[in-house]
């Protein structure tokens, strides 16, 4: 069954709204009601982690039953959120999609090198084996997978959803990959001074828009420590030292919780390498054996 059929069936079964993707070129999240079911799509540009919306503005409490479309990486968030009792399991219907990897739309525009925006109906994109095939107005372009794939997808361990109620498409057979913390190890091999130099250059850029926090599906505290005035752990001024405080605290709060969906790094307007920080924490958490103490997410439970 394809996505739309699945969605139709779910609406019939009493799901009120499905959080999914819409558009071919201009891909956006959509909160689809039953009459908009035809808008739902999935293609390699569906980069967003939609589980973030489940915890926003008390959304789960307002609706009886919500459907949510997840890729492999996004599905891990659901497990983590359930572990934290963010909502009850019977409120949500997880529509899992085995995923071959996603891409940044800007990269395609860059590669095609055309100036104008494409209309949704003249644009087609899909995976064909190890190639990405893009069709624009009848013209077709091909890109090799490893050239265009998002970094996080290159080391993805779970292309198949680890939790789902309905599956759209077939499970993917993929050689087992393992996160090896390559980038983290690279930084670790630098000297203390070099590391400091690297990081101040990055931290100085941060404009503290807090997009990385807002987009994170696991940053959903109702009263965030950053908004607290008494005690004020992070001052409002946007300066190097306060930025460092912010980034240490953000990464730390996600210790053993971050599922590595990469959303924080993707949204950052000034391209801070936030995944590096997250991965470092993940690596140390593993090393220190925290996961025995604090409940780990059991992948594939």
């Amino acid at each position: 069954m394809d996505l739309v059929e699945v969605a139709k069936k779910l609406f019939d079964e009493g799901v009120e709204v499905i959080i999914g993707y819409q558009g071919n070129f201009n891909v956006k999240p959509i909160f689809a009601k039953a009459n908009e079911v035809d808008k739902l799509t999935f293609n390699p540009l569906c980069i967003y982690n939609l589980t973030n919306y489940l915890t926003m503005e008390g959304f789960v409490d307002k609706v009886d039953k919500i459907g949510v479309v997840v890729k492999g990486c996004d599905s891990k968030t659901i497990l983590q959120l359930l572990d934290e009792n963010a909502f009850s399991r019977d409120k949500i219907v997880v529509i899992g999609i085995p995923c071959n990897g996603v891409i940044d739309v800007n990269k395609i525009v860059e590669e095609i090198g055309e100036f104008r925006e494409f209309k949704d109906n003249e644009f087609k994109i899909k995976w064909e084996g190890d190639e990405l095939v893009v069709e624009v107005n009848g013209k077709s372009y091909k890109f090799p997978k490893d050239k265009i794939l998002l970094e996080k997808c290159k080391v993805c361990e779970t292309p198949n959803p680890v939790v789902y109620d309905v599956l759209v498409g077939n499970l993917i057979q993929q050689p087992h990959r393992k996160e090896e913390f390559k980038a983290v190890k690279e930084i670790e091999s630098l000297s203390l001074e070099q590391r400091w130099e690297f990081w101040i250059k990055e931290f100085e850029k941060c404009i503290r828009c807090y997009a990385c926090r807002n987009v994170c599906p696991l940053c959903y505290c109702e009263s965030c420590v950053l908004e607290r005035l008494e005690p004020e752990f992070v001052r409002r001024a946007v300066r190097l030292d306060e930025n460092i405080a912010y980034h240490l605290i953000r990464a730390y709060h996600l210790a053993n919780r971050c599922v590595g969906c990469g959303e924080c790094e993707r949204v950052c307007p000034v391209n801070l390498p936030l995944s590096l920080l997250n991965k470092k924490v993940a690596k140390e958490v593993k090393d220190l054996g925290f996961s025995e103490f604090l409940k780990p997410i059991e992948v594939g439970r």
Binding site: Y210, V267, P269
Partner: peptide, 21 residues
């Protein structure tokens, strides 16, 4: 706005937004 993250990127990068505290 259903899908907005209220992240503020649009206002912080905008050359004309001028709200301050």
């Amino acid at each position: 706005s259903e899908i907005c993250l209220s992240c503020g990127i649009c206002t912080y990068l905008c050359p004309t937004c001028h709200c301050f505290d």
